[in-house]
Design a protein around this nucleic acid. Sequence first.
DNA 1: GTGAAAGCGCTAACAT
DNA 2: ATGTTAGCGCTTTCAC
Lengths: 346, 346
Amino acid sequence: MKTVTMADVAKHANVSKSTISQYLNKRFDYMSEDTKNRIEETIRFLDYRPNILARSLKQKSTTTIGVIVANILHTFSSQIIRTVEDVCNETDFHVMVCNADDDPVKEKKYIEMLRAKQVDGIILLPTGINVELYKEMALNKYPVVFVDRTVPGVQIPSVLLDNEKAGEIAVQHFINNGFERIGIITNIIKNVTPRKERVKGYKEALLKNGFAIRDEYIKNLEVSNVQKGLEEMMALPEPPQAILAGNDLVLIEILKHIKKQNIRIPNDLAVVGIDEVSFSTFYEPGLTIIEQPAIEIGKKAAELLLNKIQTKDFESETAVYRYDPKMVVRESSNRIMSDEESQKLT
Amino acid sequence: MKTVTMADVAKHANVSKSTISQYLNKRFDYMSEDTKNRIEETIRFLDYRPNILARSLKQKSTTTIGVIVANILHTFSSQIIRTVEDVCNETDFHVMVCNADDDPVKEKKYIEMLRAKQVDGIILLPTGINVELYKEMALNKYPVVFVDRTVPGVQIPSVLLDNEKAGEIAVQHFINNGFERIGIITNIIKNVTPRKERVKGYKEALLKNGFAIRDEYIKNLEVSNVQKGLEEMMALPEPPQAILAGNDLVLIEILKHIKKQNIRIPNDLAVVGIDEVSFSTFYEPGLTIIEQPAIEIGKKAAELLLNKIQTKDFESETAVYRYDPKMVVRESSNRIMSDEESQKLT
DNA sequence: GTGAAAGCGCTAACAT
DNA sequence: ATGTTAGCGCTTTCAC
């Protein structure tokens, strides 16, 4: 591929490079119609395409941001990416997508590569582990926005689900439906806040309704122990009638157990899950899901980041933006998309 | 953010920039242990991070590729992105993701921006419209790989579903289940091959089984006319017992109609859809889906492109790689993910 | 073994 | 109105 540069255009059009540069940057104030036309013509004639890399080197801005998610296959992540891309597109920014698989090593590598490639900012679904790195970025005023999780002690703004409210809503839903003995199973995640907040919401809602908090109904387990933990809970003299799954991984385990034992939802056991992954994939009727408003979250995160970048206001801040959960009951499996839903997909 | 450059490191370490460059590129052959250590120390001390942009400008390679999909929310697209990213990660390439919404104008803009940003190649789910642009890229030996569709007359390799086989499998499935009067509805898509191939497969399978091809059972419609077209077909003196939906959009329309009329699948009407979108989202029991092997397709596309880039073999070629469809019957809605499936998500 | 210098393609301050 | 010039941060050839 022949590579035509500004110098070539300048020569052919009998002007200097700076004039071409002016032209490209639409500074026509002091440019004669004549040269303007001549340049335009030459550009077309030579099929000249500016090299944005060179510009970026000079301008110290690549109009590119990075998005690091845990897993693109999760609907939450793909909705975030989609929305971020949409917002970026409005100002001709581009998006570099990275899959960190919730692996701190990969996360670190990606952050470093993205910075080496001079992206103007990063939207990060943090593993929560690379605290020193997060802090260093905040310290150096590198534009970063966290999504889905906050990391305590790190001066980086976060956009996420109102996890406390999610816990509350779930419990309230159980109570409204006549369930009184309500358990919660979460899984062990380090250094990241949502789990605790969900448990807090769970407790608050119980208290608000005048129910006692029973420690034997609250378990925080490794994913591999969830099934066992659930069995134990169900073997209590007074087993819970309803279970709140603290996140997607826990829900998967609970559903597996239910399937194995031929338990029916919600009659034998009511279940609510707080969603991060594509639960459309296992469409258990009767199951209730608390969904993340991914679109709103992604939009806010992108706007925050782009605003930081464009206003060059890189002051680190610790603002946390929380968005309301949406409760969805899988009424029956025999559901077909609403028009609205199908439109989103097409 | 203080920006440390190679020159700073050179000065502090009392060597020249070129020596630093050697160091960074791991050309230690002629470097004394002493300077090597000194450089290493200085780099750490100054917290120096190479600017890959500057390197890219010089080397004319950004180790970044672009992926332009129709809609990230479609599982097909996100699987492609996921796989491409995985493959790229192995050789430290990065992926710029763009959502063209199947809009030729957006597609063109993205292609031009990606090229201006000097990405080393593009994986493109083509709208099929910007033929001149595709041709120009092929002519200039710009590395591009098409996914999901081929564009006739354009010298760019494609990786896609074996659409003919998909049509055949669907029809064979109907026939094996005792259905003889089989219709097909496709929607009008310009300048792109899959639709025709699916119809071809449909016809071949009928003939192979000794059934006649009935023109009144074959419709190619605008999406907005699918419901009407289906009604007409069902109003025939001998209505079809089974319908093959040519793609996702058609399937959505057919399912809406079915829901409205309270038709049961497959007893009242058997339906097979060829999938591109997330059909897990409407989990109609009894529905049969022919899925694209997105992982294989994405992997092949990424490997093809990276290979072109790394071997600098930019000869345009028109190879078409077709992958076998996978048939999935939605046996019952009451399905929970298999372990294998749930693993993919976590 | 290491350094000097030219250059990648562009921008922008300053001249003219 | 347009040109001159000095970079941006790196790589690479060729000297020493």
